[in-house]
Simulated scan of single mutants.
Amino acid sequence: METHDVGTARWFQIFAAKGVKELVFVNRIEKPMDFDAHPHLPATLFKCTFLTRLYLGFWRFPETARLPRSAAFPYLRELGLCSLVMKEQDLAFLLDRCPVLEKLMMVGCKWLVCLRIQSRSLRCVQVSYSIVTEINAVHASLLERILLWEPWGDGGRANMSSKIKIGHAPKLKVLGMLVPGMHKLQIGNTIIKAETKASPSTIVPSVQVLALQVRLGTCIEANMVPGFLRCFPNVEILYIESEDDDFKFWGPQSGSAGKVSLKFWEKAGPIECIQQHIKKLVIRMFRGTKSELNFLKFIAERALVLEKVEIVLHPESLPSNEVDAKVRTFMTSAKWANGCCELMVLPYQGTPWCYRRGFDLTNQDPYDVSKCREGQCQSH
């Protein structure tokens, strides 16, 4: 192991001497889930001061407490941390030493992620397949996107919880996937609850694209959806990742109690983003359940400027033509707020997460990954 560390340290010295600007440094290990098998990255990594783009995978990050205070990546703009073993204080140190960092991705992190975003440069943060205890946009004046995909909460398999706090993020445009059954959302000093009313202190008016992952037939989760939507009054594109109501990977075990009918949604009252701003609704992993249909009808009858509804099927659902007929039959009784709205039923499209599209800040909707599968994604 010591010889390997010396060799790795020598590599970084060579990279530094050559002024390498882009580096992907991934360790090949036989047992990627064995955290003890992850070798240490040498501190000579910080000698590569010319780096503008850095991706690290399957390493144990060096202990930053032993590094000189001058250690930094002054030109680094894009950082990917993939399946690293890393301490919270080392992550904080690293981010503090990247003064122009714009894009941060963390995938498969091998530690409890508590991410405090205090940056004048960060524009996009992506976190996936990691155990996240908290993401806190404390002071992020340029932050435009917080993209989460399968971020597991702390607290055990059946009772996961995680905190999402939004403090100062005036340019935040894209947020999700938020999970009402797992995420505790806090705006400023207010923890959002089902009964929370919209007020200047509980809204984030800059958000235009919002994605929620929710069990629409589970009362305790569905009850939080209106509260979440009230926090983002100017949302124009809404994604709903519909989860199986029998899915018990997060939230209270009693969560399935209660009935989610159309009247349930009607009791939510007026919601500004639905009535005035939502132009596109996408319901993914659609199975054709009554709870999904009721939610669709609730939106359709209130969204005055809704232009398009996309129903993306679950891979194990009925054939698309049968689901299409079922949806259209059910919606014949709906009094559409916008009679010109287009309704489409589409086959399963796979995961909605594409990290390259997420980092492409010229694309307004990072969750629209249809072109990624058609081979036309300009972000690739």
Rank of each mutant, 00 (worst) to 15 (best):
T3V: 13
V6S: 04
W11M: 11
W11C: 13
F12H: 01
I14F: 11
F15T: 00
A16W: 13
G19K: 00
V20C: 05
V20T: 09
F25P: 03
H38R: 03
H38I: 06
H40P: 07
H40N: 11
P42K: 06
F46V: 09
F46E: 03
C48H: 02
C48T: 04
L51S: 05
L51E: 08
R53K: 11
Y55F: 07
W59N: 05
R69T: 14
A72S: 15
A72G: 05
R77C: 11
G80A: 05
L81I: 09
C82M: 11
L84S: 04
E88H: 06
D90T: 00
A92I: 08
M106P: 07
K110Q: 14
L112A: 13
S119I: 12
Q126S: 09
V127K: 00
V132P: 05
E134C: 11
I135R: 02
A137Y: 02
A137G: 02
L143K: 04
L148K: 04
W152A: 15
D154C: 15
A158P: 03
K163W: 11
K165R: 05
A169M: 06
A169H: 04
K173W: 11
G176A: 10
M177Y: 14
G181C: 09
G181F: 10
M182R: 11
H183M: 14
L185N: 08
I187N: 01
I192E: 06
S199R: 10
I203K: 02
V204P: 01
S206G: 08
V209W: 04
R215L: 09
L216N: 03
T218W: 08
I220D: 04
L229Q: 03
R230A: 12
N234I: 10
S242M: 03
S242D: 01
W250L: 11
W250C: 11
P252Q: 00
P252L: 03
G258H: 07
L262C: 06
F264Y: 09
E266H: 00
A268Y: 05
A268Q: 04
A268F: 04
P270C: 13
P270M: 12
Q275E: 15
H277I: 08
L281N: 03
I283G: 02
M285V: 03
M285G: 00
S291L: 03
F295M: 06
F298P: 01
E301R: 00
R302A: 08
V305Y: 13
L306H: 02
K308Q: 15
V309F: 12
V309K: 02
E310I: 12
V312W: 02
E316K: 00
S317M: 10
V323I: 15
K326R: 10
M344C: 14
W353H: 05
W353T: 01
Y355I: 13
R357K: 14
G358R: 01
T362W: 05
Q364L: 14
P366V: 03
Y367D: 05
D368P: 08
S370C: 12
S370N: 13
C377I: 08
